[in-house]
């Protein structure tokens, strides 16, 4: 997995490292803050460290990791040129990423209203055509894929998929 990344993604830049460190700090900070609200219910054995001990220990480790990562990459960031620091943004094709993310989010939001067959077909047509597939094969593939999934899950495995409240 890691070796996949070595080839497919650019080397770790200070901006990525810094963001990762800050993300760890935020998770650890919010977690530690929330852990003060955890309350035991009922009798607790005095030898039991309680429900707070384990998460707090883990979050503390995570916080230390975040501090280390942040300091390390801030140092790297301060010691390099601006063009190198912008490598992360240049490495990504944000347009297609946004199309994908937006499409998936819209699909999940629309599923309870318009149901799986319609939403999935439209989503697949939209995604495939925006990625360069001609509309005819895109429509055929979308309908076939939606039908196959429906047959397998709903008929075969008796796993219901949303039909939509609008219909």
């Amino acid at each position: 997995m890691q070796s996949d990344l070595d080839k497919s993604t650019p080397s770790v830049t200070p901006v990525t490292g810094l963001l990762f460190g800050l993300a760890l700090l935020v998770v650890a900070g919010v977690g530690l803050l929330m852990s003060s609200k955890i309350q035991s219910i009922g009798f607790q054995d005095p030898s039991d460290p309680g429900p707070v001990f384990f998460p707090r220990t883990l979050l503390s480790f995570l916080g230390f990791g975040g501090i280390f990562e942040t300091i390390r990459h801030t140092w790297r960031w301060m010691n390099q040129s601006q063009s190198q620091a912008n490598n992360d943004a240049l490495a990504m094709n944000m347009k297609y990423l946004m199309v994908g993310m937006g499409g998936i989010s819209a699909l999940i939001l629309a599923l309870p209203y318009f149901g799986f067959p319609l939403c999935a077909s439209l989503f697949l047509v939209g995604l495939s055509t925006s990625l360069g597939i001609q509309w005819k094969p895109a429509v055929i593939f979308s309908l076939m894929m939606t039908a196959v999934i429906w047959v397998i899950f709903v008929w075969g495995l008796q796993a219901p998929l949303p039909l939509g409240s609008v219909w």
Partner: peptide, 26 residues
């Protein structure tokens, strides 16, 4: 391009069918 669409759809259905919950899809 087609594989990406199929993987997304299978992933959504796989996550949903566990508890019939869109929360799991999010």
């Amino acid at each position: 391009a087609l594989v990406i669409g199929a993987v997304i759809l299978f992933s959504i259905v796989g996550a949903y069918s566990l508890r019939n919950s869109l929360f799991d899809v999010w």
